[in-house]
Design a protein around this nucleic acid. Structure first.
Lengths: 230, 230
DNA sequence: CCGTTAACTTACCGCCGATAACTTAGCTCG
DNA sequence: CGAGCTAAGTTATCGGCGGTAAGTTAACGG
């Protein structure tokens, strides 16, 4: 509700000669804030962002080629935040616990900042050049590290961690994005649902590895001769 | 490329007195086609749809309250199509096979009609009144039926099939939407990836049920004393 | 102190969703 | 048949959008 200190009579102080970069940062945070406050991606118009910063809309184009470039920057910022949150407080945990923590941190961020999350995961990078925008993020790298450690601990078959990372990511993304998009479904406690889904993805992958990628019948036969532990 | 037969000199023949409903259908299919052909949701403007049908843009509002209502109708259509595809060719299959088939049909549709799928799963119904728009769909009902049969076959713990349906749906949605949104990732064969993820979700749920919702350590301990079958 | 130029602004374009007011074609009924 | 009602459209217009061209001004180097 607080207005930017931009009284009509006192227009924005023009930046110093080399200080155009500073405005770029202000535009970026304004876009993020606007997204968070309105909770709607199309409320983030070039004009609305400019108003909030206290400049006119064409000034945005001095720092971002177009709206897509601005949103790309927001997306990069989201992935950076995601990495921070996913890697906080992991000290002293064993690999499997770390995996769970990282997954839950991912879902928590998604549910806490649904519109940022939706933007980051919905936006398709059109340019074919950057083959692995997401995979180059620190978040993805740290996640695959944890998976490699889980392999060493015997939870998964050893090998390339990337496919497992993608599978678990799909599970986390699936539940997070569904809760966001369909909030009226009878979810119950989102944390519990997310935990259930993540556990199922991890357990399922672990058992599939153990059984050597079984087909449905093979799994059914194996499971029918199992007994629950005491 | 073929033009609608609407030469400037011969304007659209006005519909019969009660035949306004027919135009509604034409508008709907035009919107769907436009979405499929352009592959872009914001290319579906009221004006573009009207042009394709051969009417002027305000005429759309005689049949749909606003753009959101038109897109809602498209979404309903998508879910109906999804139900058809998910329930084709299931005769003679056992419950577990049916579950796999339905999941794969879901993913196949998503990948074949990515923009329709994205619209249907991204769009949040604002009105709080309709508590379960998705859950009332035939697709969801048929899916829970299959899960109930899997329970009877001993694959899952017996009980309410809804949470399991949601979990498996999350897995299918997660992998489908990720492949759509991030096509440049090294997916390999999408069918294989989807199968892997769906199997993991089902297997994981089955084993979690067997072990009574184990925590990570409990599962790790259980798994470490398992042996692969011959 | 003067010229250069980075950092903006003003004015505008075409497209968007949406509404109000107008026109016209199809039908009913005397 | 033909007068009149009204469903089924149209034309005209609004404010807001992304984006661009051209003008203005303030900070700095010489």
């Amino acid at each position: 509700m607080s207005e930017v200190p931009d009284v009509p009579g006192t227009p924005r102080r023009r930046a110093r000669r080399g200080a155009g970069e500073q405005l770029r940062g202000e535009i970026l945070t304004a876009a993020k804030d606007l997204l968070a406050e309105t909770g709607s991606a199309d409320a983030v118009s070039i004009r609305a962002v400019a108003d909030r910063v206290g400049i006119t809309s064409p000034s945005i184009y001095l720092h971002f080629a177009d709206k897509k470039a601005l949103l790309d920057a927001v997306v990069a910022d989201v992935f950076a935040t995601l990495d921070e949150l996913m890697n906080a407080g992991l000290e002293g945990l064993d690999p499997l616990e770390r995996l769970c923590q990282q997954g839950m941190a991912y879902v928590r961020f998604a549910l806490a900042s649904p519109e940022h999350y939706r933007l980051a995961t919905t936006y398709t990078r059109a340019e074919l050049g950057d083959v692995d925008l997401v995979m180059q993020t620190a978040a993805f790298a740290h996640f695959t590290d944890t998976i490699t450690e889980c392999m060493a601990a015997g939870l998964f078959a050893t090998g390339d961690p990337t496919p497992i990372a993608i599978d678990l990511w799909a599970a986390a993304h699936g539940i997070a994005s569904l809760i966001i998009a369909k909030p009226y479904l009878p979810w119950g406690d989102p944390e519990e649902v997310a935990y259930r889904v993540l556990r199922a993805a991890g357990v399922g992958r672990s058992i599939s590895d153990l059984l050597g990628d079984p087909d449905p019948q093979a799994f059914a036969a194996w499971r029918s001769q199992l007994k629950a532990p005491d």
